[in-house]
Deep mutational scan, measured.
Amino acid sequence: AITFRFEGQEKAKKFYEKLMRQNLEATIHIHGDEVHVTVH
Rank of each mutant, 00 (worst) to 15 (best):
A1N: 11
A1E: 11
A1W: 15
I2M: 09
I2E: 04
I2D: 03
I2T: 07
I2L: 08
T3E: 04
T3G: 02
F4W: 09
F4E: 02
F4R: 02
F4G: 02
F4T: 03
R5G: 04
R5W: 11
R5N: 04
R5K: 14
R5S: 07
R5Y: 13
R5M: 10
R5V: 15
F6H: 01
F6W: 02
F6V: 02
E7F: 13
E7R: 13
E7D: 14
G8D: 15
Q9I: 15
Q9A: 13
Q9N: 10
Q9F: 15
Q9P: 14
Q9M: 15
E10F: 05
E10W: 06
E10R: 05
K11Y: 09
K11T: 12
A12T: 01
A12M: 03
A12Q: 01
A12Y: 03
A12D: 01
K13D: 07
K13Q: 14
K13H: 10
K13F: 14
K14L: 13
K14I: 12
K14C: 03
F15H: 01
F15D: 00
F15N: 00
F15P: 00
F15W: 04
Y16M: 08
Y16K: 03
Y16H: 04
Y16D: 00
Y16V: 09
E17D: 12
E17Q: 08
E17H: 06
E17F: 05
E17K: 06
K18A: 13
K18H: 13
K18F: 15
K18E: 14
L19F: 03
L19I: 09
L19S: 02
L19W: 02
L19P: 00
L19Q: 02
M20W: 05
M20T: 07
R21G: 08
R21L: 12
R21F: 08
Q22K: 09
Q22N: 09
N23A: 07
N23Y: 05
N23I: 03
N23R: 06
N23Q: 09
N23H: 11
N23S: 07
L24H: 05
L24A: 05
L24D: 02
L24K: 07
E25R: 14
E25W: 14
E25C: 13
E25M: 14
E25H: 15
E25L: 14
E25V: 15
A26S: 04
A26C: 04
A26D: 01
T27N: 05
T27E: 09
I28S: 01
I28P: 00
H29T: 15
H29E: 14
H29D: 07
H29Y: 12
I30L: 11
I30G: 03
I30Q: 08
I30H: 07
I30W: 12
H31A: 09
H31V: 15
H31K: 08
G32R: 05
G32T: 03
D33I: 09
D33W: 08
E34I: 12
V35K: 01
H36D: 03
H36Q: 06
H36R: 08
H36F: 15
H36A: 04
H36T: 12
H36E: 05
V37P: 00
V37G: 00
T38M: 10
V39P: 07
V39G: 02
V39T: 04
V39S: 03
V39I: 13
V39N: 02
V39H: 03
H40S: 08
H40K: 11
H40T: 09
H40Q: 09
